[in-house]
Design a binder for these strands. Structure first.
Lengths: 204, 204
DNA sequence: CCCTCAGGTTAACGAGCGCTAACGACCCTG
DNA sequence: CAGGGTCGTTAGCGCTCGTTAACCTGAGGG
């Protein structure tokens, strides 16, 4: 019942648990991983996890809410930065959004995988919260895309943004991640693919 | 033990079960659906399913192997048809591949969802088989793409094909499928997006 | 008319798993 | 050097869920 919990210094154990849980959930699915496995992955075993989380669901919830918030926050930050620069370069802004999303997809593969795979394992309240965050993130993109391509209708822009997310999030699904041509090259390729898709969306 | 099983007339019950199981698995995940629910969805209840399938795993396996085989077969058929026509139009061939895949993504959403979401719930032998079919399907696309864009290196072509699959398979993940601008328009839009991505991949 | 067999039914078992209970060791502070 | 808070441990409960067992029914066929 101790209020004012989260002090300052990062509870290393919590983060360690979250990281391992994300990896395991992404590999074998939320229901396919037992709490004993998660515990074993961080050196403690079984119910010791309950000193840090109220339950298994809470770990997944924190992961999904966290990634959704970080994605949305990053998108909004880039839009704000563009506006601070005068806001006249939708091209550069779209590039910044793409780059940020690619960083996420390449550096936090497990989270990206969980993000659109295990969403409905959440309790209603958490699921709605994550969905709302995701929707707002999409709307940030839709706004930027329509600023760059004003002739693109809104619902088509939304479908396009969804499709580009699918494109950018495709690398975690790759069977052998080592078959990629290097991080920078992969990022550059994905970036060009995304821009190509957006450009093709305009030519109605 | 009755050999020469699958006669001619479709075993309606089996197909009915498979269809409902696909829908439920896609909605709530393989582990999130109980056999009682599947049975209830087809009017029988619980263990009556075991008159048609040796187990729950077998349903998923049949679904995933089936879709993988149909995708690969469709791709190979289109390549063969192109070769029969003289084989000089990689553009038209790529368009045919894209169109076939879009048909799948739009008409068999549950299967497409399962296809890259519940793969690792299969037993080793089934999973390897599905993975091999998926790999061969990718290679069909890679061959066509490289025929159209010879300057595109093989590993980059493979990443691009994967990314385009992610793009084309994005619609089932859409929260509200009714927000789509109509089937034909959606198919056309996705087609253009895919072509735009491929075109962007070439300009190394 | 019986026999078979496909296709159901309900009851129940057994394993897995999330979670709680009860307890212990360490560290810090007064 | 007590005493409490943190962070573990192991034992075990209770429930879910896939699967099996045993039984039933109705439709052909000889």
């Amino acid at each position: 019942m101790s209020t004012h919990a989260a002090r300052v210094a990062a509870p290393t154990r919590r983060e360690q648990i979250l990281r391992e849980a994300a990896r395991l959930f992404a590999e074998r699915g939320f229901h396919g991983v037992g709490v004993d496995e998660i515990g074993a992955a961080v050196g403690i075993s079984g119910p010791g996890l309950y000193r840090h989380f109220p339950g298994k669901d809470a770990m997944l919830a924190e992961l999904l809410v966290g990634i959704s918030e970080r994605l949305l926050e990053g998108g909004r930050r880039r839009v704000a930065e563009d506006e601070a620069r005068g806001g006249g370069s939708p091209e550069a802004l779209l590039d910044a959004l793409i780059e940020g999303h690619i960083d996420f997809a390449l550096d936090d593969r497990p989270l990206i995988t969980l993000h659109d795979r295990e969403l409905d394992r959440l309790r209603d309240t958490d699921r709605k919260r994550v969905r709302r965050l995701q929707r707002e993130y999409v709307e940030v993109w839709v706004g930027v895309v329509r600023a760059l391509y004003p002739s693109l209708a809104e619902n088509r822009a939304r479908v396009t943004v969804h499709a580009v997310f699918g494109l950018l999030n495709s690398t975690p699904h790759l069977a052998r991640p080592d078959a990629l041509p290097g991080r920078a090259a992969t990022a550059g390729l994905l970036h060009r693919l995304a821009r190509g898709a957006f450009a093709a969306a305009e030519t109605a």
